[in-house]
């Protein structure tokens, strides 16, 4: 399996990255170089094997911990927006969203 420049463009768009032709070409070469070492993995027979999500689930079930339905977060808008690129009247500003 080998990626094409078209694949790179599609993936970059999905990831919201912009790659000029030079970077796109280098990315193509590097990704194909990487997927060359991935091939061995695809050959492994994994029929009947459960995927391992939380590593420690390898020795026992891990269940989601649930918290009680209580409100305990005070309004910290100011502190939370200290590093915001653009804020007006408490709202985060972005280029117009068209639906």
């Amino acid at each position: 399996m080998s990626l094409t420049t078209h694949d790179i463009a599609r993936i970059a768009n999905l990831a919201r990255l912009e790659l000029d032709p030079v970077h796109s070409e280098r990315m193509l070469v590097q990704m194909n170089g990487f997927f060359a070492i991935v091939e061995q993995m695809r050959a492994v027979d994994t029929t009947g094997i459960e995927p391992l999500a939380h590593p420690v689930a390898a020795i026992g079930d891990i269940a989601l911990r649930l918290r009680d339905d209580k409100v305990s977060e005070p309004d910290q808008r100011e502190a939370n927006q200290v590093s915001a690129p653009a804020v007006e009247r408490g709202l985060f500003l972005v280029p117009k969203v068209i639906e």
Partner: peptide, 21 residues
């Protein structure tokens, strides 16, 4: 992004999580 994208998830991410076990 590529290994999670449509049509590749099973072959890559899921396969990797199985070998991980």
């Amino acid at each position: 992004t590529y290994v999670l994208s449509h049509g590749y998830y099973d072959a890559y991410y899921l396969q990797a999580q199985k070998i991980r076990r």
